[in-house]
Design a protein around this nucleic acid. Sequence first.
RNA 1: GGCCCAUUCGUCUAGUGGUUAGGACACUAGAUUUUCAAUCUAGCAGCGGGAGUUCGAUUCUCCCAUGGGCUACCA
Length: 487
Amino acid sequence: MLVRTRFAPSPTGHLHIGGLRSALFSYLWAKKNNGKFFLRIEDTDRSRYVEGAVDSIKKALLWAGLKWDDEPIFQSDRLDLYSKAAEKLLNEGKAYRCFCSEARLDRVRKLREQNKLPSGYDRKCRNLTQEEIDEHLAHGDPYVIRLKVPLEGETICHDLIRGEIRFDNNTLEDIVLIKSDSFPTYHMAHVVDDHDMQITHVTRGEEWISSMPVHILLFQALGYEIPAFVHFPVVLGKDGKKLSKRDGAASVIDFIEMGYLPEAVVNYLALLGWSYDDQKQIFSMDELIQFFDISKISKASAVFSYEKLDWYNGYYLRQLPLDDLYQKALPYFIKAGYVSNPPSTLEKEYILKILPEIRERIFRLKDIESYCKFFFHQPEIYNPDDFTDKGRDLNRAIEILKSILPILKETDFNIQSLEDSLKIYIDKTGIKVKDCFMPIRVAVCGSKYSPGLFETLSILGKEESLKRIENAIKYLGSSQLNTGTTV
RNA sequence: GGCCCAUUCGUCUAGUGGUUAGGACACUAGAUUUUCAAUCUAGCAGCGGGAGUUCGAUUCUCCCAUGGGCUACCA
């Protein structure tokens, strides 16, 4: 049988990173089996609908490379499907109209809780006489439609990850199928749609395990074949709660903006709760499709690690051909205001020179903004401590900078010439490499950390580099006067 | 309260009735080097607790603890 899965988000906001993982797992399973993967928008709660959410979700899925088959399905377009199904259940005596007010439902719930009964509905309307029902209807009283859940026995559920799960029917509720606004609840819509769409594997988060038995009962009541169920473990934050903004980024859009590559996110997410063997860490989408196996998804929920994602992102950043890297990085240079939009030929060349030097030093493309600042702006302030190794004399650093200035003036600013000149200088003076290079680095970059010195100097060019060194000398001279720092 | 799910290094995980319990990230040290990073090498670190089954349990069973979910006319 052809495998058919679906991702079924509700349009209540941006796609959560955990949602993307669920979508990924469903997608991989479908593709692995040469099946189909669909997108279904669960927009049955009109009060929670967020404008633009559908587009945002689609964009996130496409970004990750999860292309759905056919057109997305909107539940709000298929209301008659659900009411017909409900009508059928009503006629067959498998569901009933409930006229209880929300106020009464609240009261009942509280009372039952006080009496330590399983909280929920007391099934008052389950046994209404036809006369009572007709009377309510004649009055035009609002009602919901509830499923008549068997009062005894047990419902046995199967989950592909967890195996068999049993529920006593007396702990189950007469769930609402159709709300009083005649929209279906999740339960009803899910069962009708997954049957109608011929979904073979119902995939969703593990928060749905508790309602699996009533879903199975509903499938049976409607005479539908029961699909396979797969409940994915949840993605947690460091605090053990569901990952949220306070953990850092939580929605896919956030990760996109920070400059994570889809390859990295997909690779990381796939291995968060699923594993292939005890060795392989790097997976392309094709490999994931090839190797993915639902039964190897782990049962326990997983804590999201930004560190490990960063590691993956760094890896994929380094794998990227320079042209691709440029395309992806350019927006971040523009956003930081470092180059014009679109960039001039000169600016493009400049970025192309920078990229190979920084790609091993950044985790996310967003880091470009802070890491590359010195390539576009000369340092405004210096920390004198940066110029010297601990305990060394700042004056000496200044002297070294002064003495090196004329030498650099005579040097071509290409990597080879710079290296030659500075090596000669070091040999001649006997100054340690560190004591010579660090002051130059800090003068030019404003930081102790930078790409290679020769590379940095050659990218910045002679004029700019010399200007910065002179500036630094001036800055240090005056700061020494002002603070009286001598060492 | 009721029902349900889960539990191997800090984190993600592999694994088996007998293993030096393996890998990855992070961390530490070393190598390299002009700093940082990258890279390479090495190291640190784990089977929640208690019974039972067994010659032997991390692995099987039960109980407990802890964490999580559901208990809406939300999904």
